[in-house]
Design a binder for these strands. Structure first.
Ligand SMILES: [Mn+2]
Ligand SMILES: [Mn+2]
Ligand SMILES: [Zn+2]
Ligand SMILES: [Zn+2]
Lengths: 156, 156
DNA sequence: TCTTTTTTGAAAATGATTTTCATTTTCATT
DNA sequence: AATGAAAATGAAAATCATTTTCAAAAAAGA
């Protein structure tokens, strides 16, 4: 990520202001944290990571900012069944980093996978088209998760 | 549902006892409630419905039973983003009542759809096979949801 | 019936998220 | 640079779905 010095990616300023929001330090850092990891962070995870660079951050602001980022569409919010929401940077279905999840019901491990996505994307496109027409439903997003046991959890 | 008189489907007794659990009145009624609706009930929804036939029911028991039913695999637990878990009778991917969901982010409406499932199922099967092998992950279930705006919510 | 194990319900506890509210920051205008 | 309105922030309190505790009731077995 070339744009250091705490400025965050420049085009994001526009994204925020365009929606009538201000690009503030807490928001930048929170976004930086989410941009800098492939993990699926909880609000408190984010809070702790941000705290390093910006000790005065409040957990409330983290929650508010995450909600905002989800609303703007910059991040995704997930429920993997462990009682807290988890977030990751949004990568549209065109991006080569777009992925779906395997969720281990044994240990809670989350595995990102991008394999087989091509076919999935194609089917998804077709399905979304059909559903949009039949139910007059404007689809903006999809969620696909597989549940099961990871290698570790299978062997006892 | 032919087996009334509060007995519940007979084969369920076996299902319960086979797992070392007892088929009690609260459990039967809770299962009956979920069998008798296509809605996506919250724990409290279930509690209220059960209360008619069994006024002494406790909310705690509802939570415990729902958890048990999910564990046994008789019902599914969903998070549609409204802050409470919702449940529905499990219909395996073979069943003709198996379906996926459209979730309206505007009003929270949930639409069941079975259309286009055939192709989805086929792809899912292939995908699951591939993922199982590559990640050595034993897949037992999947979740597919589409988010967007329902007809009502689109027109302002 | 007697005994053991499971289930149940009320009340209290938990804990993630939201709300409140006074203070601080931002940003467009003087 | 100073000003003022609007937006953003953080600490503390409130919410509220879900879980835990614990003593009493129900079920299975001998
Ligand atoms: Mn991911
Ligand atoms: Mn459904
Ligand atoms: Zn695992
Ligand atoms: Zn709607």
């Amino acid at each position: 990520m070339p744009w250091r010095d705490g400025a965050g990616a420049p085009w994001l300023h526009g994204k925020f202001k365009g929606c009538g929001y201000r690009m503030t330090m807490p928001r930048q850092i929170i976004l930086d944290v989410l941009s800098g990891t492939a993990d699926h962070l909880s609000a408190e995870d984010v809070y702790h990571k941000v705290h390093n660079a910006y000790p005065s951050i409040g957990l409330t602001t983290v929650y508010r900012t995450l909600e905002l980022l989800v609303h703007i569409g910059l991040i995704y919010k997930f429920d993997f069944g462990d009682g807290r929401s988890r977030y990751e940077l949004a990568e549209g279905s065109k991006s080569d980093r777009h992925h779906h999840h395997l969720v281990c019901t044994g240990c809670g491990r989350i595995i990102d996978y991008t394999d087989f996505i091509d076919e999935e994307i194609e089917l998804l496109k077709k399905t979304e088209k059909g559903l949009s027409e039949k139910y007059n439903f404007k689809i903006t997003n999809h969620l696909i998760q597989f549940y099961g046991l990871c290698d570790r959890c299978q062997n006892k």
